[in-house]
Amino acid sequence: MIKYCVLLFLALSFVSCNNSKQEKLISLLKEWEQREVLFPDNPIFTIQGRDTFNFFLEENFKIVSYMDSAGCTFCKLRLRGWNQFISYLDTCSHSRIPIFFFFHPKDKAQIEDILMHENFKYPVCIDVNDSFNKLNHFPSDIAFQTFLLDKSNRIVAIGNPVYNPKVKELYLKIIQGDKVESDNKKNVIQTEASVGKSVISLGHFDWQKEQKASFVLKNIGKSLLVIQDVNTSCGCTEVTYSKEPVRPGDSILLDVSYKAETPGSFNKTITIYCNANSSPIVLRIMGDADGY
């Protein structure tokens, strides 16, 4: 079964030290603990438009990711991130780990175009009838629609390794047979950090023009502040920052650029993973990309 240390590892990966949020998250994780994921009969997978195989393979582990039709499809897919993760997984695991995707799109042609444009060469089931979700009733939060399964298709861990580097770390530990520690933060010197403004409105602008904003992260603790990773909720949002540690009392700028894919209102998050007690720190940009 999923041991408590794994649950706590996941809880600490998704929220900072907020007991109420951690308790709700642990409750969700326990609900899915060791649940068997059910698959539709004879799902058809495709790679670059070519029909492939039914995938019920006898591997020790497999990763299965579901995506619903809500929100921006391109933003949610994060195919470049998946390409990088799969390549990394192939180099560090002792055996091949199958990864399969079930996408329930609003527009099948759109998702096929995205797969081709991103040169995505891994098995995808375009599940027009949403049959995979109807069998399992997955959580509505995309952060919890990806699963590491054992040979019997039971859930070993939950979370999207492309969205969250801590989940990526957990998946790799389990796959490689390493010990999962629930007190991983104790091995890292912690500090304190504050953000001058955690939400920035970009207002109204021409959707075809790239927008920029900057967040200020200040080290208000007594040890060096180190940013370990920065994750965005959308491929249309990019963040640049100095990789140098931040001395106590100093600040670092996180420069954000946003290029809308289509006109419309948006609300995007930037998640900062660092050695601050409040990590992960969630920042947000919002606004209205106007079409004329």
Score class of each variant (00 low, 15 high):
Ile272Thr: 05
Thr240Arg: 13
Gln34Gly: 05
Ala11Gln: 10
Gln48Lys: 08
Ile26Pro: 12
Phe215Gln: 06
Leu79Ala: 01
Glu192Ser: 12
Leu224His: 12
Phe56His: 11
Glu33Met: 15
Asn275Arg: 10
Arg35Cys: 06
Thr271Gly: 03
Ile26Met: 15
Cys234Gly: 05
Lys121Trp: 11
Asp290Gln: 05
Ser140Gln: 08
Met116Phe: 08
Leu135Asp: 04
Phe144Val: 01
Ser279Tyr: 11
Glu118Ile: 01
Gly287His: 07
Cys72His: 13
Asp113Met: 14
Gly203Leu: 09
Ser95Asn: 02
Ser65Gly: 13
Leu115Thr: 08
Val246Ser: 06
Asp229Ile: 07
Gln145Ala: 00
Gly249Met: 04
Tyr122Asp: 07
Asn18Pro: 12
Thr146Arg: 11
Ser131Val: 09
Tyr292Ser: 09
Pro105Val: 01
Gly221Asn: 01
Pro139Arg: 00
Pro123Asn: 05
Leu224Asp: 12
Pro98Leu: 02
Tyr122Val: 09
Tyr88Pro: 04
Ile2Val: 15
Ile86Tyr: 02
His204Asn: 09
Leu149Met: 09
Leu202Met: 14
Ile86Cys: 01
Gly196Ala: 07
Val195Thr: 11
Ile174Tyr: 03
Gln176Ile: 03
Leu77Tyr: 04
Asp255Ser: 14
Val246His: 07
Ser65Arg: 14
Thr146Gly: 09
Val156Ile: 13
Val124His: 10
Lys24Leu: 12
Asn231Phe: 11
Lys168Ala: 12
Ile44His: 10
Lys259Ile: 03
Trp207Arg: 03
Lys197Asn: 12
Asn60Leu: 01
Phe132Asp: 00
Pro123Phe: 07
Gly203Asn: 03
Leu89Gln: 10
Glu244Leu: 14
Glu238Lys: 15
Gly203Gln: 03
Cys17Val: 10
His137Arg: 13
Asn153Pro: 06
Phe56Met: 12
Gly291Thr: 11
Gly264Glu: 03
Asn54Met: 05
Lys106Cys: 10
Met116Thr: 07
Pro123His: 06
Asp68Leu: 08
Phe266Gly: 04
Asn187Tyr: 11
Lys3Glu: 06
Phe215Glu: 07
Asp113Glu: 15
Ser131Arg: 04
Ile63Cys: 07
Asp178His: 14
Phe39Cys: 00
Lys76Pro: 01
Leu57Trp: 10
Phe120Asn: 00
Tyr241Pro: 11
Leu10Ala: 11
Tyr258Met: 07
Asn231Met: 14
Leu115Tyr: 10
Gln145Thr: 00
Asp206His: 09
His204Phe: 10
Lys134Ile: 00
Thr262Ile: 15
Gly287Ser: 05
